[in-house]
Amino acid sequence: MFQIGKTIVSEDIIQKDFLCNLSACKGACCIDGEAGAPLDKEETKIMEDIYPKVKPFLRKAGIKAIEAQGTFITTELGDFETPLINGADCAYVIFDNKGTALCAIEEAYNQGEISWKKPVSCHLYPVRVREYTEFSGVNYEKWDICDDACTLGKELQVPIYKFVKEALIRKFGEDWYAELEKVADTFK
């Protein structure tokens, strides 16, 4: 682990490779698991504000889940997440004609309906950020459903931090990312 500003960063972020392979996994990270996508407090307001423009892109089951649970939920620990459909799929998941899970929020963004791409936790995946009182932990979340992404990343030599560059800059800023690149260079 190493420190950049008020973040403690796992060396896995720069040492391991990753490149999403949607043709292999079909977007399983959006439909598997036991919880919705983590949301920052600021994102909860955005979720409420964009819902009317995202709703036309949603499946009926997603609309039903959101209208029953809200545009986000608060966990027992006080964290915020996207709601789930019957404890499985993220309520914002849609599917393309090949059965690949996609994000309705991102689709609304791609179509120019909204100016917010998607929750930063989704944009950062497989990187997870955990907020602590004095610092943020930046870690790689290894999940076997992403084995094909690890294989493709290794084959094409794409380290995790490069795969999620845009999201890391969105979360921490250009200067932070430039520092990360300097650290990564020392590992070569």
Rank of each mutant, 00 (worst) to 15 (best):
W116N: 05
C25E: 10
T75N: 02
F172S: 01
A184G: 09
A178R: 15
D89C: 04
I4C: 07
Y140E: 03
I8Y: 05
C30M: 09
N139L: 06
T44I: 04
T133W: 06
Q69K: 11
N21W: 06
G27R: 08
S121D: 03
V9M: 01
E11Q: 15
Y51K: 04
N21Y: 10
K53S: 01
E141Q: 14
G173P: 02
L84E: 10
F80G: 00
Y177K: 03
G36F: 07
V158H: 09
H123G: 12
T82F: 08
K142A: 12
F163I: 01
P83N: 00
Y125D: 01
K165I: 00
Q157S: 11
D12I: 01
N86R: 13
E155T: 12
V120S: 01
D89M: 14
F163D: 14
D32L: 05
K165R: 12
P52Y: 01
K6A: 09
C29D: 01
L102A: 10
I73W: 04
T100F: 11
P56I: 03
A91Y: 07
I145M: 06
P159R: 11
I105Y: 00
S23K: 14
A104M: 03
K60P: 12
L168E: 07
I13K: 02
E48I: 11
M1I: 10
D17G: 00
F18R: 09
I145D: 01
E131H: 15
A149L: 07
G112D: 07
Q15K: 14
G173M: 03
L124H: 05
L180D: 00
F172E: 04
D96E: 06
K60F: 12
P159S: 11
I63W: 08
K53E: 14
K53P: 10
C146R: 06
R128E: 14
A61C: 09
K64C: 06
P119Y: 11
A149K: 03
G112L: 03
T133P: 01
I14A: 04
G137T: 13
K45E: 14
E43Q: 15
L77Y: 05
K142S: 08
E134N: 11
K53D: 14
E181Q: 14
E76I: 15
P159Y: 02
L77V: 09
K53M: 10
Q157I: 14
L102Y: 11
C103H: 02
E43I: 13
S136N: 13
A184M: 00
T7D: 02
V54Q: 08
K64L: 12
G62N: 06
A65M: 08
A68Q: 13
E42Q: 07
V138F: 02
A65G: 07
Y177R: 04
L124S: 04
E11N: 15
A178Y: 05
K16A: 03
E141M: 15
